[in-house]
Design a protein around this nucleic acid. Structure first.
Lengths: 147, 147
DNA sequence: ATAAAACCTAAACCTGAGTTTAGGTCAAGG
DNA sequence: CCTTGACCTAAACTCAGGTTTAGGTTTTAT
């Protein structure tokens, strides 16, 4: 069993955030001794899930709904499974998008490297895509394609 | 040259958001004819960069700073390059994290699939990591490792 | 026994990123 | 011409997700 301060250290969340999550109902089974919160293995696993679902873009109230399902027992397995399937798709789409952003960023890094060498952007601005070096053209085209 | 409504269509941003970005100074060179905004190629490229930098987690005021650098000319190439190098690292780290989240989500999908088959979580809860099927154990371990 | 450190609550406050509203102006088609 | 839809502004509003504050209790170390 851990105190809120220890959990804060372990996960790198401020204490105020853990209290806030608790208030939002994200630790429905947390115990207390004379008012003081006791985080057990259940709460640590909840925090791992919270971290994951938050990073995948879910709102607190939807995470709360998931915790409610967990309290409701076996009858909600289908909903919980559906949630994770959906978030898996969301994250896969996000990674794909991030990779596109990465291409844009790589292109811009190269672009400003060139601009610094040239002292201006004249040559770059006149350049058409097929004059780009191979390793950069792919990134450029990916970054400038629609969707 | 495009109107704000056309650009809204092209990029899928609400008109109010484009006006908001303009107000925040993200289109420093935008022209107008009798008060009406005219989006040219410069503004479209700015929007592509805005999209990219926002998705990489940059705040509006930092994007504004970048636009200011663009107005200042060749002397700010180093700062602009640094910005893109840093954001590239940020996005790379984010992708790595997303992949970890994905492993957690895959594990949870499998977990609830099993729970539905079993009708309860008894078997799953007693299971220790090396009893997991190979294809899931890797995800589980990745998802539960620190950092 | 006592003082410092860590815990507690409720409620006010903050921030970023827009959105909405109210009241007007502009331009393209009939 | 004139109307209708798209445009304009300033300012107020919204919302999620916390953080801060004020005032109090509990635990821990000396």
């Amino acid at each position: 069993m851990y105190t809120i301060g220890q959990v804060s250290e372990m996960f790198g969340f401020p204490v105020s955030t853990l209290r806030y999550y608790d208030k939002q109902g994200l630790f429905p089974e947390m115990e207390r001794t004379s008012g003081i919160r006791k985080f057990g293995e259940k709460e640590l696993e909840a925090l791992r899930v919270i971290e994951c679902l938050k990073k995948s873009g879910l709102e607190i109230k939807d995470i709360k709904r998931f915790m409610d399902w967990c309290m409701e027992g076996a009858s909600t397995y289908p909903q919980r499974r559906e949630l994770f399937i959906k978030q898996k798709q969301v994250v896969e789409a996000e990674i794909a998008q991030m990779n596109k952003m990465l291409d844009m960023l790589k292109f811009k890094c190269w672009y400003y490297e060139q601009a610094m060498q040239d002292g201006n952007e004249d040559r770059l601005k006149k350049m058409i895509p097929n004059q780009l070096p191979d390793c950069i053209r792919a990134s450029y085209e990916n970054a400038h394609s629609k969707d």
